[in-house]
Simulated assay, not measured.
Amino acid sequence: MKTIILVTAIRYLTPLFLVFSIYILFRGHNHPGGGFIGGLIGSIAFVFHVLAYGSARTVNSYFQLTVYHQDRQQNNSPTQYMWDMVSANTWNRLKNRTPDWRFHIFRVRPAYLMAAGLFLATTSGVTGLLRGKPFMTGWWMEVKIPFIGSLGTPTLFDAGVYMLVMGMVLKLVFTMSKE
């Protein structure tokens, strides 16, 4: 049931859920949390968005990117050409378009998100083997990032699990919402 209260609330809660899920993801190597619970919280944002708006609008809003481009004319400088590309792909998408503009649509599918997450999690374990240590041995960077801490292979593993969980839940939700 689509109500104006749900639609309005989801518009404000979706970014909050996503920011909180990223916070839980990076908090996970020092405190409870990590990739699994962060992925669940992040996917809850999209589940509520599907309930409020439908799966087609959720896919078009969050999982599809349209990139406009055109061939470079001889009289344009490289700076002007780059400015035209940036303005066409940000705030001026449909205004002043001539027929020589083309576009590509890039979609992030949940299956690709699952595959990338599994690859990232596996790669984080292989780095220990490449350094002559056992599989899944943690390696930490010396530099500490404010509010996050130091990054390392456990953070990469958590990011892979985050993407895997989010892809699984999104695949389930998008499949069930179409039926």
Rank of each mutant, 00 (worst) to 15 (best):
165 V>I: 11
108 V>K: 05
82 M>Y: 05
76 N>W: 14
7 V>H: 09
168 M>G: 11
62 Y>R: 10
104 H>A: 07
121 A>Q: 02
43 S>P: 06
1 M>Y: 07
43 S>E: 11
99 P>C: 06
9 A>Q: 09
74 Q>V: 07
45 A>K: 06
46 F>N: 01
92 N>S: 11
35 G>V: 00
141 M>C: 06
38 G>P: 03
91 W>F: 12
108 V>C: 11
45 A>S: 12
73 Q>I: 00
60 N>Q: 09
41 I>T: 08
138 G>V: 01
161 V>L: 08
1 M>R: 13
60 N>M: 04
54 G>L: 03
95 K>F: 07
65 L>R: 10
160 G>I: 02
93 R>Y: 04
176 M>D: 01
59 V>G: 08
94 L>Q: 13
175 T>Q: 14
24 I>T: 05
139 W>P: 02
27 R>C: 00
15 P>V: 08
73 Q>G: 13
148 I>M: 05
162 Y>P: 04
175 T>W: 08
79 T>K: 07
76 N>R: 15
16 L>F: 15
32 P>Q: 12
47 V>N: 10
84 D>E: 15
113 L>G: 02
34 G>E: 05
66 T>S: 07
71 D>M: 08
34 G>V: 01
54 G>Y: 00
16 L>E: 06
104 H>Y: 09
135 F>M: 14
120 L>M: 05
179 E>N: 15
31 H>T: 11
141 M>S: 08
49 H>P: 04
95 K>Y: 05
68 Y>L: 11
145 I>N: 04
87 S>R: 09
179 E>G: 15
28 G>C: 03
34 G>R: 05
30 N>G: 09
9 A>G: 01
83 W>V: 12
48 F>C: 15
44 I>F: 14
166 M>K: 04
34 G>N: 06
9 A>I: 14
108 V>A: 12
76 N>I: 04
41 I>W: 05
39 G>M: 09
135 F>A: 09
156 L>H: 02
123 T>K: 02
49 H>M: 12
121 A>G: 10
141 M>Q: 10
28 G>D: 03
120 L>Y: 01
124 S>T: 00
145 I>C: 06
179 E>D: 14
92 N>P: 02
29 H>P: 06
60 N>S: 13
128 G>M: 06
134 P>T: 14
176 M>R: 06
95 K>A: 10
1 M>I: 15
119 F>Y: 05
18 L>K: 07
122 T>H: 03
66 T>R: 15
29 H>R: 12
144 K>Y: 10
123 T>W: 02
96 N>W: 08
84 D>R: 14
47 V>L: 14
152 G>S: 15
40 L>I: 06
136 M>Q: 08
173 V>C: 05
63 F>K: 08
10 I>E: 04
110 P>K: 08
115 A>Q: 07
109 R>M: 10
31 H>P: 01
63 F>A: 09
26 F>K: 09
119 F>W: 07
26 F>S: 05
4 I>M: 08
94 L>D: 07
55 S>Q: 10
159 A>R: 01
125 G>D: 02
35 G>N: 00
8 T>S: 11
36 F>W: 03
177 S>R: 03
107 R>N: 11
157 F>Y: 04
179 E>H: 15
101 W>Q: 05
40 L>Q: 00
143 V>F: 14
152 G>A: 15
24 I>E: 01
52 A>P: 10
109 R>Q: 12
51 L>G: 07
133 K>E: 12
85 M>V: 01
56 A>C: 09
